[in-house]
Structure formats: structure tokens, C-alpha cells
Amino acid sequence: MIRMLHLHRWKILAVATLANLVLLANLAAGDPKGLEEIAWLDIAGEGGAALLAFLWLGLILNSRPSGRVTNYLVAGLTGIFIAYWQDVLDEVIRLPEAVVWDHWVESGAMPLGMVLLTLGIYHWQREQLAINEQLRRRERIFREHRSFDRLTNLTSAPYLRRQLAMELGEAGRAVTLMMLDVNRFDHVRRQLGPRDADRLLQELAELLLLNLRQDDLLCRYAGDRFAVVLPGTGEREATLLGGELIAAVDHFAFKTRQGETHLQRLDVGLATARGDEPDALIERANQDLEARRQQPAPA
């Protein structure tokens, strides 16, 4: 759960120190109110807002590496948090009329925080567009973080089915589905051992991505089988692309942890959509793959 927080030790310390300073300043300048003077509803409202702002701060810090965008977001949320914090303290500590800085904390930190947060979100959006560009070929049209495969970080079979349902819904557009798997992977796994076999799949995923076009989508179907959605592509073009992937994997000299070279072959099957449902298209591509699978060389 707590994965990124350790990167932000100093920021967390700064926020905590700031909140403490405000508390100490309030206590130094004013006196606590009596119980009968306290408006509990206001405390619940303002305290809740402060608590939520603090929670957002934690979630943001835990999900982001350090950097400019993170700094903006954190500064903005800190401003908002401090403003609400002063609000809460106002409810329990009475400051003399002569003190005016509390108004500055309350009314100054809030707009300043809002501006910084807006700036942060703007840059965050720019950053996200850049990441989307990097993620192309790994996802198309919609995002669902729960459908990423753990091993390869590609999307998995349920995502493929939903994606195909959307692609096939667009009438008049050719879609070809390609299925790929490693020839005799069961033997490969026994030869390499499970860890190297897993690494082989990870590296194959990267290699396949490098050889695909911008609009193609690579998914991990199951085990050693990958699926490629080729939008706007007919059978001829898909066959060419399949040949390129086979050639790329033929020339891929995978290294085991002992540093030995392991060569492997790819088998490819294709199915071009002809008004079928996603499951039927997947099934046809699977059957094509199994029919074309190269028979093992006689021992």
C-alpha cells in the first residue's frame, strides 16, 4: 500500500510542521473557548474539510514520484489544508480583536492553494497526455486499471473482449485479430525454469510492442499466448505484420540468468472480423493459430 510515501518524507514533515506552527501561534495569541461557546456543527464541517484535504494530500503523495507536477499539487493542497485548519482552530480558540494574521492565513492560503492546485492539475494533464502516448499499443480507447496483467503489464483477456466489442461495433471498418504464442512453450518452461520463462514472456511483450504500429493493441491472452488487435487492417496486411513479428522473434537472442542464449519461435494465427461477436472472432483466431502451429521437428 505505502509505496511512494518514503520519497516525500520532507514534504510530509513540512506540512506537519506548518500545521503545528499555526496551532502554536493560535495558542500563544489566544485563549481556548469554553465548551458552551463551541459550535459543533462548524467544527464537524470545517474539520471534515481539513481532514479530506489532508487525505487527498496523502493519496497524491503515495501515487506520484517527486517532480514539478507533484510539487505544485502538494503546495496547492497544503494551502487548502492550512486554510481549513485555521478555520477549525478559530472555532476552539478565541483570538483578541487586535490579531489580524489569522484572517490572512484563512483568506490568503485558500486562494493561493487553489491557484497552485490548478496549475498542478494543468501540468498533470499535460503529463498524462505524454504518458498516454507512451501507453498507446498497450491500451486503446478506454482505461481500466484492474485489467492489467501482473507479469507483462499488458492488458488481459477481459480487456481484449471489451475492446473487440467496441471495435466490432463500428460498422464498415476492417479489424483483424492476431494470436501469437511461443512454439512448445511447455518445453521451454521446463528447460528454462519458471523464473526465466516468466522473464522471457516479459521481454517478448516488449519486443512485440516495438514491432507494432501506433494504433495496434497488444494484450496478454493467457499463458504464453498474446493477442494483437489490428484496426483498419485486412488479412493481407495482417499476414505481412505477422511475418514481421515471427522474424523479429526468430532474431531475438534471449539470455537466461546464467547468461546462456535461448532461441525461440513464434506461431501466429489470424482472423479478420466478418460481423462476428468478440468471442467468435477470438475462437477463430485461436483455431487458426492451432492449425498453423509448426509441428515439432522429429526427435
Partner: peptide, 13 residues
Amino acid sequence: PAYPEQYRVHLGS
């Protein structure tokens, strides 16, 4: 099951 692809790849057609 909801994950027929695992059966398909790991067992057979």
C-alpha cells in the same frame, strides 16, 4: 468459468 482463455491456452481446444 469467467476465464475460459486460461483453459484454452493451458489445457487445449
